[in-house]
Write a protein that binds this DNA or RNA. Structure first.
Lengths: 267, 267
DNA sequence: GAGTGGTCTAGACCACAAT
DNA sequence: TTGTGGTCTAGACCACTCG
């Protein structure tokens, strides 16, 4: 347990919101994640006890438990009464923003993301879009279609609906825009906080086939979902269609924490 | 907020492990889930404050926070400093066991689950199976193939690998077994605690095509994953292949809680 | 300024696992 | 029996939102 240090947050240059001291339980969680990823606690190993961690960080037990609970919900460790926690895996979840942003995910995976607008229009919301964005059917939205690529190869078509208050910022973007998430955060301070994602299988339509260079009947892995801001207001309703073999998605769940739902197919 | 009562756990007949009094924070969370599902707190509504809930349940604030954190990670509510929590959705996650068990999910959705063994053999583990079960390549496992149906219609083929210590119980099961999860819990006390699931898209092979009555090239939605016991020991490695249009899966994530990973395709 | 949720402390008792 | 994690309490201070 030598590597666990409390040094974190080297406040060399407090840029923007960054330099702000992070909560202790987050730093403890991060230390443990790193220690696990570095192989200090390999799969199957026992983590230090709550008491040991509390003493090491000079923290109360509740603070340590908050950190450990985070690791538990991430599927990294398992807990049982009577024995120290056990390491389940060595590196699982990526950062939150990496799931919400194709571009951030691609970069972290060592690939070059691309995004090109095929369509940008203002029109009335369909029923699915209205439900997702929590507005009325027929209310105006910004509708976009983008082809997104990895290292130059197109792998998905993205259809998105945005609330009308985002129209100006979206229309002002260049046609080639690898990360809309980053652009909107920079331009209008839009910060994402939570999301809901549904996965199923669809056939390519004529548009998908043409944009991706595949057959009209070829299957695509579809991810649909709503992205929300911190107060729960939806900021985006998106449908991604991935080419066969281009991506997969992994989820963790446990007794005390269940983010996944199985559903009968909807429209 | 009238409906929120602390009565729960009417210990009329403490059968098996059931009558055991549940933790207060779980009962609070359950009350709130029910109140939200019943429309008492519709989408967009504000939940009672932590202080109000603490007084209502005669509980400490920390206990109330534990309950509210559960709802947050389930994607039901969002929290911001300075204002009461907001309801995001009215019913999202199902119980944990419903994701791990096809049968329990089907029943809760009002359908009749079916399961028929097509194969039960003991053989050496493939590489994928060995990694999933954390054993050596070539170690003996129990391999099963089952066709599973909903209301009589076959909708998926399930291939599973179990550790050799489960072989006796599995071989003893009848050919028609709607819920293997329930059977194993009853017979050898196997209780599941956590899981990891990966979703992608594959083409049916000859076996799938024959069992499901589809074409060899038809696409299937694949769910692969490991199910674990409370101490982290893997008890099952499973690959499900769903017929197009027969099922979809939904996930929630948020800034403080990120169960989902996006991956490049693996074998 | 009043009230909210976020963080943290310092205890306590319990159920359970290992010895 | 000892030590673990699970639960719960009763405070405290802070950052933030809202009127």
């Amino acid at each position: 347990m030598k590597k666990l240090d409390r040094t974190g947050a080297s406040s060399t240059s407090p840029r923007r919101d960054e330099g702000r001291r992070r909560p202790l339980h987050e730093r403890i969680a991060e230390d443990l994640r790193r220690a696990i990823a570095d192989g200090e606690f390999p799969r199957g190993a026992q983590l230090p006890t709550e008491a040991a961690l509390a003493e090491h960080y000079a923290a109360a037990r509740g603070t340590v438990r908050a950190a450990l609970q985070a690791l538990t919900t991430e599927g990294l460790v398992a807990a049982r009464r009577g024995t120290p926690r056990v390491v389940l895996g060595t590196s699982m979840s990526q950062s939150f923003s990496q799931l919400l942003s194709f571009a951030q995910w691609a970069i972290s995976a060592g690939h070059a993301p691309g995004g090109r607008f095929v369509e940008r229009t203002i029109r009335a919301a369909t029923e699915n879009e209205a439900i997702g964005l929590q507005i009325g059917v027929g209310d105006e939205i910004v509708h976009t279609v983008r082809v997104r690529s990895l290292d130059g190869t197109p792998i998905l078509v993205e259809r998105s609906a945005y609330p009308i208050w985002a129209s100006e910022a979206i229309m002002a973007l260049p046609v080639d825009c690898p990360s809309l998430t980053a652009a909107l955060e920079e331009r209008i301070g839009l910060v994402l906080a939570s999301g809901t994602h549904t996965f199923d299988l669809v056939r390519a339509g004529q548009l998908d086939a043409r944009l991706l260079g595949i057959d009209v009947d070829d299957p695509l892995l579809r991810r649909r979902g709503v992205i929300r801001m911190a107060d729960g207001t939806p900021s985006e309703y998106t449908e991604d269609r991935f080419v066969e073999g281009s991506a997969s998605f992994t989820v963790h769940n446990s007794v005390g924490h269940n983010p996944v739902t199985r559903d009968l197919p909807s429209s």
